[in-house]
Design a protein around this nucleic acid. Sequence first.
DNA 1: CTGTATCCTTAGGGATACTG
DNA 2: CAGTATCCCTAAGGATACAG
Lengths: 135, 135
Amino acid sequence: MPRRRRRSDCPINFAVETFGDRWTLLVLRDLLLKGRSSYSEFLRAEEHIATNILADRLQRLQEDGLATRGADGRYRPTAKALDLLPVLVEMILWSATHDQGTAAPAEFVERARHDRDSLVAELRSSCTTVQTQTP
Amino acid sequence: MPRRRRRSDCPINFAVETFGDRWTLLVLRDLLLKGRSSYSEFLRAEEHIATNILADRLQRLQEDGLATRGADGRYRPTAKALDLLPVLVEMILWSATHDQGTAAPAEFVERARHDRDSLVAELRSSCTTVQTQTP
DNA sequence: CTGTATCCTTAGGGATACTG
DNA sequence: CAGTATCCCTAAGGATACAG
């Protein structure tokens, strides 16, 4: 399957082409923010992703260098994926501000608002820790 | 036309459902970062958006409270849209870091890296200025 | 210039069955 | 458990033509 050709070299377009669809960002959320790593864990997402869609997105994440699959069958975020944490945090902040009915932990939002960088650093290191904890 | 029902109350999901498609974010980019405001200006986007798609996205942006259409037929970002600037900036930073071949102005990227908050503030006020400049 | 309308094609997605 | 494989269907998208 030839990968769809890129429409432009704009950085926003690159982001769109990497995770601008209805599922990829949710898988990344589970991978980066919810500490999920196995197929069945991703399948449990409350948005109810279909098995074929999930398999496809996990494949793409690997192709795009955002995740690796270990011998144990668990998916781990790469550094490239970890660098998306600021994007995710800003999205959460935006949704929490503008969507009444959004279910973001108030504590998280407050922290993101006042102490964004240290929150990102913490999330980052918690991912890394989990990553190395299974020798 | 009934609007698609939301899949969950997760803030990331809210973001996905608002601009998680292949075009909305590009229109927002033009609106927020490129100072474009008229239909023909958006149509000039290098990604070549079709007329019906553009009309649809402009409509949705209004429905979602991200843009307003003035009597002059020009589209203006709302405060809700301006609050997406940090998200866009983080995306640009991420793409500039991880996509060789991305065409982001080096000056902009440096500024974003070292002086993110003031850059966002500047972008925000430049939008506002443009907005009020036609009395 | 700012869009509608139409037609057509394809990719994306959902349900479900099945396999190692 | 961790996926493939199908089937089917709809929404999304592209190309144009047309209209006020």
